[in-house]
Simulated scan of single mutants.
Amino acid sequence: MKLLAVAGKTLREQARNPLLPLLAIGLGPFFVLMMWAFFPSGGSTTYPVVVVNSDAGATVGGASLRLGDRAVVGLGALTHDTGVPILDVRQVVDLGQARDELAAHRAVAFVEFPESFTRSLLAARAGTSAVPVRIGGDLGSPLYPVVAVVVADGLDRFARQETGRPALLELTEVPLGASGSRTEFELYVPGVLVFAIGLMMFAAATALAQETEAGTINRLVRTPMGAVGLLGGISVVQVLVGLAAGLVSLGTAVLLGFRSAGPLWLALPVWVLTSLSVIGLGLLVAAFTRSVAQAFLVANFPFGLFMFLSGTMFPVRGVPLFSVAGQEVNLLDVLPPRHAVNALTTVFSFGSTAIGYELVMLTVLSVGYFLLGAWAFHRRHLRVAS
């Protein structure tokens, strides 16, 4: 009952000053919308490529043949599994113009077919010639390797089709679960959902700092409720806000075309456990601050560590330490969002419910973070106040 009394008090305070909880709930859908806007073409990226087609062609049986034109059409016909074109192919006059397009960031890479392109392909039918093609771009760009692989594979298929020569290797790509039919937007949704829960760190830290700054904590700890009731009541409200943030963000993603290969309800235990770890960090931040402004500023540091080193926003390999029962233990595994992202990806993309390891790690880490934060807050504020 004491816990519920504190929870009710916290809810009333949140209602009187709803900015932070509304931000925590609203920023998740906002980032989902942003991610969806990044992939306007049906949820997948189409990469701009310029082609310098200098192919002079050849005469075969009295007819003019220019295979460079066919190669350009073939590159433009490459599509994702969702049917969205992979490449936006535009022809330019010469290599100078191609470099200008790359310098202006209007293209990711260029492809150049030499004058001898058709003649080389015809000669290759007899196995007497290689087919020269040049591809280039900014090798430091994270997009260039993707485009280079797509172009190389597309041109290899085109050359084999035109020459009738078989490939030395026959590679077959086998997607895991439903990952082969996922759009890039859908692949990013698990990380964005965990990011939305991570935003609760600011709300939790500032809610506790507000009690310290206003001096109400001195009165509360002298009541029969004690420290457990105080921290438990505030934490219950923050968990509910975290669940609301996750549900609203997921609902927004579904409305924008997100499809889950597995049961959506499995996200609930992941969100609850992740919220618990985030609240624990909020307690830790509040333990070392005495005002809302301080708490908000200090919370940025653990928030950055939690989000950007856990693979929430982009893949992070980390430092492998050892293996237990075939499961690799990584240095970054101390970050609960890492396991949350892995669990949601397993469910949403692979359609698997085998997330026992992730749930165990989330439980251990989240309880650990919460107890550490509660201990630090009690030692720094509650024990002094009492």
Rank of each mutant, 00 (worst) to 15 (best):
A5D: 09
Q14N: 13
A15V: 14
N17F: 10
N17C: 09
I25F: 10
G26M: 06
L27S: 12
F30Q: 02
V32F: 01
L33K: 00
M35V: 15
A37S: 13
P40W: 06
S41D: 14
S41V: 04
V51K: 00
N53R: 10
D55Q: 07
A56I: 05
G57T: 14
A58E: 14
S64R: 15
S64A: 14
D69L: 12
R70D: 13
G74Y: 08
G76R: 09
G76C: 14
A77E: 15
A77V: 11
T79Q: 15
D81Q: 15
T82Q: 10
T82Y: 11
G83C: 09
V93N: 09
E101F: 10
L102D: 01
A103K: 08
A104K: 11
F113I: 06
S116G: 08
S116T: 14
F117N: 05
R119A: 15
S120K: 02
R125M: 14
R125Q: 15
T128W: 02
T128R: 12
G136T: 06
G137H: 07
G137P: 03
L143T: 11
P145V: 02
V150R: 11
V150N: 12
L155G: 06
G164W: 04
G164Q: 04
L168M: 10
L169S: 05
E173H: 13
V174M: 14
G177L: 05
G177F: 07
S179Y: 07
E184P: 05
E184C: 03
I197T: 13
I197G: 03
I197C: 05
G198Q: 05
L199E: 08
M201D: 01
F202M: 14
A205V: 00
T206G: 04
T206N: 07
A207Q: 10
L208S: 03
L208E: 03
E211T: 05
A214V: 10
G215T: 04
T216D: 08
I217L: 14
R219E: 12
L220A: 12
M225P: 00
M225F: 14
G226W: 05
A227Q: 01
A227L: 02
G232I: 11
S235E: 03
L240A: 14
A244G: 13
G246E: 12
T252A: 09
L256T: 06
F258T: 02
R259K: 12
S260M: 06
S260N: 09
G262Q: 02
P269R: 01
V270H: 00
L273T: 03
L276H: 01
G280C: 06
G280P: 03
A286N: 04
A286V: 00
R290L: 01
A293M: 13
Q294H: 13
Q294E: 15
V298N: 06
N300V: 06
F308R: 01
G311M: 04
P315E: 04
V316F: 04
F322H: 03
V324E: 03
A325W: 09
Q327L: 11
E328L: 09
L332G: 06
L344S: 08
S349K: 01
S352C: 10
I355H: 04
L359R: 02
V364A: 09
V367R: 00
L372P: 00
A374E: 00
H381Y: 08
H381S: 13
